[in-house]
Each structure stands twice: as structure tokens, then as C-alpha cells.
Amino acid sequence: MSVKERGIFLYKDVLPFAAMVMVECMQVGGNTLFKSASAQQINSYVFTFYIFLIGFIILLPCFIIFYRRTSIPPVEFSIICKIFMLSVLVYMSQIFGYIGLKYSSPTLSSIMSNLSPAFTFILAYFFRMETVHLRSYTTQAKIIGTIVSISGAIIATFYSGPSVLSNSITMNWIVGGILLASQYFLLSLAMVAQAKILLVYAVDIMLVFIFGICGLFVAGVGGLVMARDLDAWKLKPDIILVTILYMGFSSGFVNVVIQMWALRLKGPVYVSMFKPLTIVIALVMGVLFLGDSLHLGSVVGGSIITIGFYGVVWGKAKEEGQVSTQTTDPLLEPHDDALEQGSFISS
């Protein structure tokens, strides 16, 4: 292998693999930090506002540099309204996710994150962005994968089973599982809405900027309404501050940039394939750092969800490989206009 070929191999294969593993580790690490910080009675509404604030602070100079020598493209008021509603969906999903983490664990959060392709497929079909042919084996794979994934989520949430490591599942665990599943349903809905917006207004940098402003406003209003105690807004040099800074920088900036780069280089199927890895990472981190319990129900449910996850992804990958003139789902197709512009919603 020549030096040039080795360089191409490193850039197109080794680097994307290492980058995606790092992204999943950073996401689980943020959830683990949040779970640890929740022991100090962290306020989810205040926390979410600070995450949006840090993300916007990082975004602002990037936006200014990008449009320093070019004119800002005009945007219609109707587009701004749609982005505002998008920010409400993302904000609600974050709140559900953080509260769900308090009640359950990062492991369950990672298990539920694998529901995203199934939820996206259902919503894309509902909004007529996905064509379904019941006699097609690719459609059958996606439908079966969706049913299997949802079945696995039900098992992981409601079935405890023998304890592999320690404590038994309580009602908090069930509530947490429902909230985490709701989080990824709302994120999938936000992805569908995002794709719709990008088809009308495909200036992704401008959309990200407007989304950042709307998200900051929604999070600010939500925080002021739900957290009226001024002490909850005070930051101290403790694990809560570390968690805010870490998640604001990683989830709000680094992970989005890496996933966008990998999406353009390798396509969405490649990016999606790393999601089940978070279950293993979360399990290890949870046991080592949080003393989490592990139950047979979580193991079985997580395994079933992963099988369903790969069923949906496999069906979509096969569909993309076929030469067809039919309109397909713009959310999961690597060369679709919406994805060519990049996704600005991170799960």
C-alpha cells in the first residue's frame, strides 16, 4: 500500500470510525455526568437553559465569521415560525430526557436512543416522506424492525427480571423509561420537521443561528416559569458547572460538527450503525462510576431494540442501493438535499 493509499484509508475509514466512537463516548459521558450531578438536586429547566446558552455563545462567532464578507440571505417570517416550533420540540425532548435520566439511568437512555430510526420511519410515513410497499422486502424489514424495536423498549421499561448486579426496578424506572422514549420520539419528530424546513430554506448556517436564538428564548421562558427560585440559577465551581460546560461544548458543538462531517463522508447508515455502541459504553460507565444496577429485562430489551434497529437500518440501506425513480425518505438518504445541507439537531 502506497503512502497516498494509506492516507486515503486513514481519512475515509480509520478516522471516521475513531471519530464516531468518540462521539458516542462523549454523549454517554455527558449523561453519566448529569446523572451524577442530579444527586445535588440539579434543576433540569435551568440546566437546559445553560446548555442552550453555551451552544449559542459558541455558535455566534462562527456565524459572524461565516457572514463577515457575504450578505445574510433573507428568510421569510413563516420559516422563522417553523424554526421556533422546531426549537419547542427540541426543548421538550431535552427536558424529557434530563428528567428521565434522573428517574432511571444512562444505560436506559442509551437503550431508548435506538428507537430513533423506528420512530423516524413511522413519522416519515405519516407525513408522506417515506414510500411504503408492503410487498417489498426492504419495507417489510423496516416495518418488522420498527415493531421489534418498540417491543424491546416495552420490555426494557416494564420488565425487571432477575437482578444481574444489584437493586430492583422501581416505579421511577418505569417513569424514566417512558420519558426517555418520549424524548426520542420528539427528536424524531423534530428531524422530520427539520427536513421539511430544509427543503424550503436550505441555508443551514442561517437555520442553525435562528434555531439557536429561538431555542435560547424558549429555554429561558421555560426556566423562568418552572424554576422561580433564584438559588437554582446560581452556579458554583462544582460538578454541576462541569457538567454544563462539558455538555454545552460536546453536545452543542463538537458532536454536531463530527456527525455532520461523518454524514457527508460516509452517509447516514454508517453514522447510525454506531448507536447501539452507546448501550455497552453506558453500561460500563454506569456500573463503574454510578453503581447502577443491571437487570435481565434491560439486557433482553436492549438486545431486542438493537435487532430492530439494525432491521430498519438494513432495510433503508438496501433501499438506497436500489436504482429507483421513486421519491424516498429525505431523512435517511445520504445524497438527499436536506442531508447535504447538514443536520443541526443532535440527539
Rank of each mutant, 00 (worst) to 15 (best):
S110G: 02
Y103E: 08
G100T: 12
N114G: 08
P117A: 03
Y159S: 04
A124R: 01
S149E: 09
M92N: 15
L186R: 03
M191W: 04
S160D: 15
I169G: 14
Y91V: 03
F96M: 08
W173L: 06
F127Y: 06
M171H: 09
S93P: 06
L134N: 02
S110Y: 07
Y98V: 15
Y137D: 02
L89I: 08
G145M: 10
S182M: 15
A195R: 05
M171W: 11
S93E: 05
S93I: 11
L199F: 11
S163V: 13
T146L: 00
L180H: 01
T131G: 05
K196F: 06
V192F: 01
Q140N: 04
K142E: 07
F185D: 13
P106R: 04
V164A: 14
Y159K: 11
G176L: 01
R135Y: 08
Y184G: 06
F119P: 04
D204K: 12
T138F: 04
S166Q: 14
G177C: 01
T138N: 04
I122P: 10
I122D: 02
R128Y: 07
L115P: 02
L199R: 14
M171T: 12
L115F: 14
T107Q: 12
T170R: 14
G176S: 08
S166D: 15
S182E: 11
V175M: 06
K142P: 07
M191H: 04
L165E: 10
T139Y: 02
G152S: 06
S104P: 05
I147K: 06
A153H: 07
L180I: 12
F185W: 15
Y98M: 12
A195T: 14
S149W: 13
S116Y: 10
A141K: 10
L199Q: 13
N114R: 07
I144P: 01
L199T: 13
V200C: 06
A156I: 03
Y184T: 14
L108I: 14
L101A: 03
I143Q: 02
S116M: 10
L165I: 15
V148A: 12
S168L: 15
L108V: 14
I147H: 10
S109R: 05
N114F: 03
E130C: 06
Q183Y: 02
L199A: 09
A202C: 14
S109G: 07
S168H: 15
A193R: 13
Q194W: 00
R135W: 07
I174C: 05
K196Q: 12
Q194E: 15
L89F: 14
V203L: 00
F121A: 10
E130F: 04
L101K: 00
M191P: 00
M191I: 04
L101R: 03
G176Q: 09
L179I: 15
M191E: 02
K196L: 06
I144S: 08
V90Q: 13
T107H: 05
A141Y: 12
M129F: 03
I143Y: 03
A195G: 13
A118C: 11
I197P: 01
I144M: 12
A118V: 11
P117K: 05
V200P: 00
Y125R: 09
T107S: 11
I147S: 09
I205C: 09
